[in-house]
Each structure stands twice: as structure tokens, then as C-alpha cells.
Amino acid sequence: MRTNPSLAASTRSLTNAASDDWEATYRQMVLYDLAADIELGFFLAYYRNFAIPSIAATLQRNGEIIERPMKRSYDTAIVTYELITSGLNSDRGHHMIRLLNHAHRHVPGSHDDFLYVLLTLLVVPIRWARTHAWRAPTPAEETAATRFYRELGTRMSIHSFPTTLQEAEKFFDSYERDNITYSPAGAQLMAGTVQVLKSRLPAPVRPLTKMMLTAIFDDDRLTDALGLPRATRLTKATLGTVLKARNVIHRRRPMRTAPHFVPGQAGSSLYPNGYRLDDIGPENIMKPTTRQPKESS
């Protein structure tokens, strides 16, 4: 029987990891084993906030997404990856947590709103990977991911964070049942942010961006709330075929040895020469006295 090199290497990495090293386990999944699918899951989590009228109204009033949709999108991703890559207790991690707390200090919203936003980063990528990745996340990876966001929530004064992924999913689904609906603010935010996604795609498929996105969502209520067209059966079937073919190829390849993200390095048109930590976030959000952690070389 032919050995699956990717699956074998992935299994070894999980077996060799210490059982209580939750941060390393989550980092391995995000940066190596399931990197592409977790990244897509983060994008989907970002969009999902626009379907909640109270959150969408706050984001619209803030103006960052409307005025600088590309910067807000990339910066949000960079903050997330910096925390995962460097660690919550690292100098870079401390900087990013201070940035998040400064950014949300005067933001209106209920505790459940803030908890939901944080839970999108946990629940949405895991669910996407379960269904569409070349392999599903393991129980150890799901537990590590839950621990990571519970620890982050504590540092952001978001209390009552679920202790298990199952509890997190229960809250997540209940919150969405009660709150997802169309709002002009949400539709405006989505329309502006779609342009960022479109700019990353090859020119021939850009006209299909919205339809592709709704096929990925596979949720008519979410699609309607965001003011997007519903995906056709053909679009969904095409997406499913593409993902299956991609996974067949992935399973035959060796595991990646280079991380999906390297702190401070280039990786986008917004920061072609790399970035400093002070480049991330709205201008002048951090106090001038905030000490800059040492940059990675």
C-alpha cells in the first residue's frame, strides 16, 4: 500500500508534540499542516461580522473599512498571524494585544458581540477545514485552537469564553440565529471588502468573485444578509470539484517545510518591503510611549 507522505508527516508532528503544548500544536496547524484552508477560514470569519447589524454599524462608523478596506483587511490578518506565530506571551504578541485593546477601548458593543467576533476566528476556520481541507483537524488541534482563543480573550477582558469547542459552536450558532440579518451598513462594508478579494484573483475570474464567495459561504441566510447574489448549483458543484482535485494533489505531496507566515516579511502589495509593528492598525492608535518590540530580521 502506498504511503501518504503528507498524512504521515502530519501524524508524526502531532505525535511528537507535547500533549500540553497547545500553542505549538495550533501554530503547526495554522502555519504548516492546514495553512491554506485556515487562511481562507480567517477571511470568511472577517466577512461574517458584517452580517451582524450591531457590529456592522460600529465598523461603519469607525470608517477604517470604508476608507481603507485593503489596509484593514491585511492588518487584521497580520495581527492574527503575529499572535499565532510569535506567541501570546512574546514581545510581538504583547504589542499586538495592546494594539487590539487600544483599538477596542471605546468601541460600543455588548459582551456577546465581542465574544462572537473572537469566536469567528475559532469556529469558522475549523468548520471549513473539517469539511473541505485535505484532512480534518484532529481533536488535539481543536482543543489547542480553543485554548488559544480563550487565552487571547482573557487578555482582552472577554470573559466567559467557552471551555470546549462544542460549547463555542453552541454559542456561535445561537448568536447567529438571533442576530444575522441584512443591514445597509453590512452590505456597504461587504461591497468595499469584496474589492480587496477581487484584486487578489487572476483577471479572468474577477467578474465571478461574488458568486465564488457565496458558493464558499454555502449559507443563503448569510449571503442575503451581506447583500450578495446566491450561488447557483453549478457554481457550488464546480467549487466542490476543484476542492476535491486540490486535496487529491495535496495528499500526494510532502508536507510543507516553510511556514505560511513570517513576522515582518513582505507578503502583500500593501507592504511589499515588509512591515514594522508600528505600521499595523489605524494611524496614531498607539501611545507614543509604547515601546516597540525588536523586529525580526
Rank of each mutant, 00 (worst) to 15 (best):
T3V: 15
T3F: 13
N4F: 14
N4K: 10
P5T: 09
S10G: 15
S10Y: 10
T11M: 12
T11F: 12
R12V: 14
A17F: 05
A17C: 11
D20T: 15
D21K: 09
A24L: 13
T25E: 11
L31Y: 04
D33W: 08
L34I: 04
D37P: 01
I38Q: 09
L44M: 15
A51H: 04
P53C: 01
A56Q: 03
L59V: 06
N62D: 15
N62F: 12
E64W: 11
E67V: 09
E67D: 12
R68Q: 13
M70H: 11
S73Q: 10
D75W: 00
T85G: 00
L88I: 05
D91V: 03
R92F: 03
R92P: 00
R92Q: 15
H94A: 15
H94M: 11
H95K: 06
I97Q: 08
R98D: 12
N101F: 07
N101C: 09
A103Y: 14
H106N: 15
D113K: 08
F114G: 04
V117Q: 09
L122K: 02
V123Y: 06
V123E: 07
I126S: 09
H132V: 04
W134F: 07
A136Q: 12
P139Y: 00
E142D: 08
E142A: 07
A144Y: 03
A144K: 04
R147V: 14
F148L: 11
Y149R: 04
R150S: 10
R150G: 11
E151T: 10
G153A: 09
T154I: 14
R155Q: 13
M156K: 12
I158W: 09
P162K: 03
E167R: 14
F172Q: 02
D173E: 13
D173A: 14
S174C: 09
Y175N: 05
R177W: 07
P184M: 06
M190N: 08
T193P: 01
L197P: 00
K198N: 05
S199V: 06
S199M: 08
S199L: 09
R200D: 00
P202T: 02
P204A: 05
V205Y: 08
V205R: 07
P207W: 07
L208E: 03
L208N: 04
M212V: 06
L213Q: 01
T214G: 01
A215Y: 03
I216M: 13
D218M: 03
D220L: 04
R221Q: 12
R221W: 00
L222V: 09
T223N: 01
L228N: 04
K236T: 06
K236W: 03
A237Q: 11
T241H: 08
V242N: 07
A245I: 15
R246F: 09
N247L: 02
R251C: 11
R251I: 06
R252Y: 09
P254D: 09
M255G: 14
H260F: 13
H260D: 11
S268V: 04
S268L: 05
L270M: 05
Y271N: 01
P272D: 06
P272H: 02
Y275F: 13
Y275M: 07
I280W: 04
I280T: 00
I280N: 06
G281H: 04
G281I: 02
E283V: 10
N284G: 13
M286F: 02
M286A: 07
P288D: 03
P288K: 05
T290A: 07
T290D: 11
R291P: 02
P293W: 06
K294Y: 05
E295T: 10
S296G: 06
